[in-house]
């Protein structure tokens, strides 16, 4: 049964994912607390996206258990699965907007599929979402191909939030944005997190977003969680990869800025 009052939004246990001979996720265990902003870091090609796709059910797992709000995909009935898919939103790295639909139609798509609403209400709620992610109603009639990178991300976020999900998965939300736009996007995630009371699971490389947005951070190395906790815990970790990531040049300068 889908349990929205549980304290754990995501619960991974002994998860193994691999392709051919290669084990990408190796007996991984992870809990994401409901209502937090959880950041996942890891080397490029280190399996972050694979982990996300495994959680979403897009790649098969070899072993282990994935529970989201108490629903295990393996044993859940179709109704619960539908209910679950309605309760999550995903922001893909490239936006993954439907290129033949306008911005409004993209945002209204999940509403059309899941809810029984009048066209007027759908358009008004879509406009509200669009304004909540910082775009103007005039942008609603544009086609995705004509949007800039930052706008694409915002529209994709609006679409991910279309059904007021309990949890959103963000795959590198600030990659490809300039520092100002990235900062604004971080602030947007924070505000929406507060107003909509959602759990956020984000993959990011952006040390600044990790510092300003995330409540808890996990570092993925060699298919396992190498370190987990606050930003402070990351700086204290002795794991070699985590050390070079957070205490490298960029990490140190960030720490200095944070301190001053």
């Amino acid at each position: 049964m889908l349990d929205l009052n549980t304290s754990l939004a995501i619960r991974l246990n002994d998860l193994v994912v691999g392709f051919g001979d290669k084990i990408v996720i190796d007996h991984l265990a992870l809990d994401v607390v409901a209502g937090e902003i959880f950041g996942l870091v890891g080397a490029s090609g280190g399996g972050k996206s694979v982990l996300l796709r495994a959680i979403l059910g897009l790649v098969p797992k070899r072993q282990g258990r994935i529970e989201i709000f108490g629903v295990d995909r393996d044993s859940a009935n179709p109704h619960d699965l539908q209910e679950l898919e309605r309760r999550w939103g995903v922001l893909y790295q490239q936006g993954a907007l439907f290129s033949s639909l306008s911005v409004f139609q993209n945002i209204e798509f999940p509403m059309r599929e899941y809810l029984d609403l009048s066209p007027r209400t759908m358009r008004e709620v879509a406009t509200a979402k669009l304004e909540m992610v910082g775009l103007a109603p005039e942008d609603g009639d544009k086609l995705p191909a004509t949007l800039s990178g930052g706008m694409t991300k915002r529209v994709a976020l609006a679409r991910a939030l279309a059904l007021d999900p309990q949890i959103v998965f963000l795959d590198e939300p600030t990659s490809g944005l300039d520092p100002i736009a990235a900062g604004e996007f971080d602030a947007l995630i924070r505000t929406l997190h507060q107003t909509l009371k959602i759990t956020v699971f984000m993959i990011t490389h952006d040390l600044e977003s990790l510092r300003t947005v995330c409540d808890r951070i996990a570092a993925l190395a060699d298919g396992k969680i190498a370190a987990i906790g606050s930003m402070g815990a990351m700086f204290e970790s002795e794991h070699p990869w985590v050390r070079s990531y957070f205490r490298g040049d960029r990490g140190r300068s960030l720490l200095r800025r944070a301190a001053s």
């Binding site: 358009r123 008004e124 406009t127 509200a128 304004e131 909540m132 109603p137 005039e138 609603g140 505000t191 507060q194 107003t195 909509l196």
Partner: peptide, 16 residues
């Protein structure tokens, strides 16, 4: 309240 205030600000210009 926070959510309502946020939504309260939207749809002000009316969809053309």
């Amino acid at each position: 309240r926070a959510l309502f205030d946020k939504v309260h600000e939207t749809n002000r210009r009316g969809v053309s």
